[in-house]
Design a protein around this nucleic acid. Structure first.
Lengths: 149, 149
DNA sequence: TTTTACGCAACATATGGGGTTACATAAACC
DNA sequence: GGTTTATGTAACCCCATATGTTGCGTAAAA
């Protein structure tokens, strides 16, 4: 399997939604992501259940962000998409009867736990508003470069 | 794919080898791991290339650890098995032209980098000897429990 | 010479995210 | 009211990759 990109994709769309003045359709989102409208709906369903967005059917419908961008962290989005497995490495047998393997498992668990905590902590510190501000900075920088070129 | 257990498995066998007084055959190792001798050879080849173990063909042959257990860290073993991908989550498009996605990618990269550094640091701090000592502790504890039961 | 092991290529298998098709339903527009 | 536009969801296929398996070659000891 390739990388699970649900978190990354949802962040992408959420920031777009935060900047849009109306709903974004699944089709439009899919085009932004280079993906498929069904995949978008499937993944966004988690965000809707988490209360981060709402969906409206029919003409003029689509997806709208309902939460305040400065109140939504990457961690919340990660959880809203179902808390996908973080690591692709892990224990061979979590419940081995072999004491050697138990010792190995203890050291592996400890290392992975530390890394996961570092990740979760960081995800909890960055909001959609932070990412949107970074976008604005990049956007301004681009205009700057165009003018001085 | 399930979890990549190569690091875990190799640690397991390395600690067994450190405690054995002779070579361990691929078949014996495979039985310890609940796996297959070919898989063992395939994975151990990396450890041999890294100089951690040696293999001997024929009668009485098998695998022997050649490095000092207190000089071999989990990190070295991780590298010897080919530095498998750590995360199962990641960026949707690492080289997107979309500035929003670039901002998302920056925040994702930063969080993942921090977690990876935490993991690598920890892996570099724990040696095979540490794991072997933990095994001894567990083993002693088990005898203790048996006597007081 | 036989047996025991490793070395390695080639192929099979399982898993899970993502892509695709199909159909149902709801809401806006005419 | 009928048509169009959207979402909701099920049911499939596709693909990458660690792992499992078979087969054959080679080296070393009995």
């Amino acid at each position: 399997m390739k990388l699970d990109s649900r978190l990354s994709r949802m962040l992408h769309i959420l920031v777009h939604m935060a900047r849009a003045d109306g709903p974004i359709t699944s089709q439009a989102a899919a085009e932004m992501l280079g993906s498929n409208a069904v995949v978008v709906r499937r993944t966004m369903a988690g965000l809707r259940d988490a209360g981060l967005v709402q969906s409206v059917k029919g003409h003029g419908g689509g997806w709208t962000i309902t939460a305040e961008p400065d109140q939504v962290t990457m961690l919340q989005v990660y959880r809203a998409v179902g808390e996908p497995r973080i690591f692709s490495i892990g224990l061979a047998d979590p419940n081995s009867a072999c004491l050697v393997e138990q010792a190995v498992n203890a050291s592996m668990r400890s290392a992975l736990k530390e890394a996961e905590e570092a990740l979760v902590t960081r995800l909890g510190e960055v909001t959609l508003a932070d990412i949107a501000r970074d976008f604005e900075r990049r956007f301004a920088l681009l205009g700057e470069q165009a003018r001085t070129a």
